[in-house]
């Protein structure tokens, strides 16, 4: 009896701690969102109140949409993220297949070479990357960002995908070979569909850091036409720092797409993180 009671007490305490921390985690997002829909006076007078008929206002959003080119920024971020992810997955899977499927001289060495980049951040090479992009004329184009993010994502992608591909049965591939399928058809038709879960893991690992990066957009593509959403909102907020309505609305607009992605992919993100991919 007493044992059951202590167990209930422990469970209640666990819930209390978790609820408290959940509030700490969500509170800033909540404050930003509710205040972005208020008049300037209400923002200051009752910062924690929900917007109601009297205090409701969209003035901040009007300023943001009029002054900042958020649609363009969003489109740039979308292009950079999607194309980089596509290249990381396709090229990473191809390299992983070569390393895990065939024995050739230098195989282990090549694996080690590609694994170097897992631990060393690409930012260290920024000085020479900028020089490279200037000399190839790619500076202030989205391609500069796409190439950098692809290079940054490939090492971990090859590592995760090749360990996954080693687990695929040889019988299937050899059956394909006996049927006269080329190595390319075997890769695209037989192997790729089987590693879909690992591809999802790699995608979610890369998606959020690419979308949120500020360093490379700031250095490689700061022009108005190539600003990403992260850089665009940073610059916008810096300029409108005294216009609280505009700042809060810009923050809310920057939160929105990531939250949508998170709600859509949270199951994969959590499964990816907990599947022991980082072993």
């Amino acid at each position: 009896m007493s044992r059951a009671r202590t167990r209930t007490a422990t469970t209640l305490a666990a819930h209390a701690v978790l609820i408290a921390y959940t509030l700490v985690a969500l509170f800033p997002v909540f404050v930003i969102l509710i205040n972005s829909f208020k008049t300037r006076r209400a923002i200051f007078r009752e910062p924690l109140a929900l917007p109601h008929a009297e205090s409701f206002s969209l003035i901040g959003y009007e300023t943001v949409l009029k002054q900042g080119d958020f649609l363009l920024y969003f489109q740039n971020s979308m292009i950079v993220t999607v194309v980089s992810l596509f290249l990381i997955l396709l090229l990473g899977a191809m390299a992983a297949f070569a390393l895990s499927e065939y024995r050739f001289p230098g195989n282990a060495l090549m694996g080690l070479y590609l694994a170097l980049g897992i631990m060393i951040p690409i930012r260290i090479g920024t000085v020479a990357i900028l020089e490279l992009m200037v000399s190839t004329g790619l500076v202030n184009t989205l391609w500069a960002l796409i190439l950098v993010y692809t290079a940054q994502g490939l090492p971990l992608a090859v590592f995760i995908l090749s360990s996954f591909m080693k687990g695929i049965s040889d019988d299937l591939k050899n059956a394909g070979r006996i049927d006269g399928l080329s190595e390319y058809v075997i890769f695209f038709r037989l192997v790729l569909p089987l590693v879909r879960p690992a591809l999802a893991t790699v995608a979610v690992f890369n998606m959020i850091p690419i979308w949120n990066d500020l360093w490379f957009p700031l250095i490689l593509a700061p022009a108005e036409a190539t600003k990403t959403l992260t850089l665009g909102s940073q610059v916008f907020i810096g300029q409108f720092v005294t216009d609280w309505n505009a700042v809060l609305s810009a923050l809310a607009l920057a939160i929105l797409p990531v939250m949508v992605l998170y709600v859509l992919f949270s199951r994969q993100i959590i499964r990816g993180l907990t599947s022991g991919a980082v072993k």
């Binding site: 959020i208 949120n212 500020l214 939250m259």
Partner: peptide
């Protein structure tokens, strides 16, 4: 996990 997915700017 929500704060982890937000950008540093936000």
């Amino acid at each position: 996990f929500v704060p982890t997915i937000l950008s540093f700017v936000i």
